[in-house]
């Protein structure tokens, strides 16, 4: 009896030891973008269910913090809503002695939303109208810039109250990136960035701050992430895309925006104002930032395995959370890029 128990114990420990060589407990830490956080936390928890020995700890501290921390090497991977600039990539190379790789994960959209008492129809916005409103040049709701695209809607003659994000955010970056592409005045004026010098309007902290202001201020307009607008049942304006069509934001119209995009080898691309009749113009990718050389073999294994899982199983979970899945062509290109991690 004792003998049998012993041999079973030995066999079990041998089995565990043999497993241990390939699957030791692994802890990964990442930090960065807040916009894809609901998606990432879902992914990490699902991935951990499938791989009980892996712990992935993600802190949604903002894209800037993600880039800083992965550059300093305090986290295993970073995450950002905007691709790293050439200077940031150079700084990364200097600090970590290896290049940084960008992996697009999911896509999202930024939508114009408004509080117009008495107006129930969904409004249509031309790029010129949006730029004019946020520049403070289009001052009233019945301005021809808005009215001409909405002939069936009776617009009030009240002053427009602009609401924007006061905290630095990827949402602001995507929105101002779009305005910079479509409006020369915007490009020459405020420009694009996660925090900019807004010509007009009130600043709300976070999506909840913006929506709080919007709900309390009649005749106001703001921009938020699509997920947030859907969850809070806010009106979402249609936006005119590069092909001249007015498109409503949805996971499908966002995927369409990326489908027509020529994807560069480093995946650093903006997909605002994309070509294609079905493309929603204020769409964006969000990225994971991974060092090309990872010394720790165990961590390297987990990161490459997670990236592969995210591109296959993970993509299927995106629409349920109102994120848009990556187009198939991008997924294939990324799978090839995973092999670069050494």
């Amino acid at each position: 009896m004792t003998k049998r128990f012993l041999s079973a114990a030995v066999a079990a420990s041998l089995f565990l030891a043999s497993c241990g060589s390939s699957e030791q407990p692994q802890n990964l830490t990442g930090a960065g973008a807040t916009f894809p956080y609901p998606m990432y936390s879902k992914w990490f928890s699902e991935y951990q269910k499938a791989h009980p020995l892996v712990q992935i700890n993600y802190q949604s501290q903002g894209s800037g913090a993600g880039i800083r921390q992965v550059t300093e090497g305090t986290v295993d991977f970073g995450a950002s809503d905007q691709p790293m600039t050439d200077e940031q990539i150079a700084a990364f190379q200097t600090a970590r002695k290896t290049p940084v790789l960008h992996f697009p994960t999911v896509m999202g959209a930024v939508v114009p939303t408004y509080n117009l008492p008495g107006v129930t129809a969904d409004l249509k916005f031309t790029p010129a109208a949006l730029a004019g409103i946020f520049l403070g040049k289009v001052k009233k709701w019945n301005d021809p810039a808005i009215a001409s695209a909405n002939p069936d809607v009776k617009l009030p003659g009240d002053d427009i109250v602009v609401v924007h994000r006061s905290d630095g955010s990827g949402t602001s970056f995507v929105f101002t990136d779009f305005l910079t592409k479509v409006s020369p005045d915007w490009a020459a004026g405020p420009g694009k960035g996660s925090a900019i010098n807004w010509p007009v309007g009130l600043g709300g902290k976070g999506n909840e701050g913006v929506v709080g202001l919007l709900k309390q201020t009649p005749n106001s307009i703001a921009y938020t992430e699509m997920i947030y607008a859907v969850q809070n049942k806010l009106p979402m304006g249609d936006v005119q895309n590069a092909a001249g069509k007015f498109v409503k934001a949805s996971p499908e119209s966002v995927t369409a925006a990326a489908a027509n995009m020529q994807m560069p080898d480093d995946f650093r691309v903006s997909i605002t104002n994309a070509a294609g009749e079905a493309a929603y113009p204020i769409s964006s990718l969000t990225w994971l930032l991974v060092p090309q050389t990872i010394q720790d073999a165990g961590k390297r294994q987990v990161i490459t395995d997670f990236l592969t899982w995210m591109l296959t199983t993970g993509q299927g979970m995106a629409p349920a959370l109102q994120y848009a899945a990556l187009p198939a062509a991008v997924v294939e290109k990324e799978k090839a890029a995973i092999a670069q991690i050494k």
Binding site: G64, D167, G168, A195, W198, L202, G203
Partner: peptide, 29 residues
């Protein structure tokens, strides 16, 4: 209101030092 301006009216939006640090630090790249 998070608007960096110096207005004579107390009813106008403004901004404070601590608020701008909290707002912009996380995303200051």
């Amino acid at each position: 209101g998070n608007k960096p301006q110096i207005a004579t009216s107390l009813l106008a939006p403004g901004y404070s030092i601590a608020a701008v640090i909290a707002n912009e630090f996380a995303e200051a790249t």
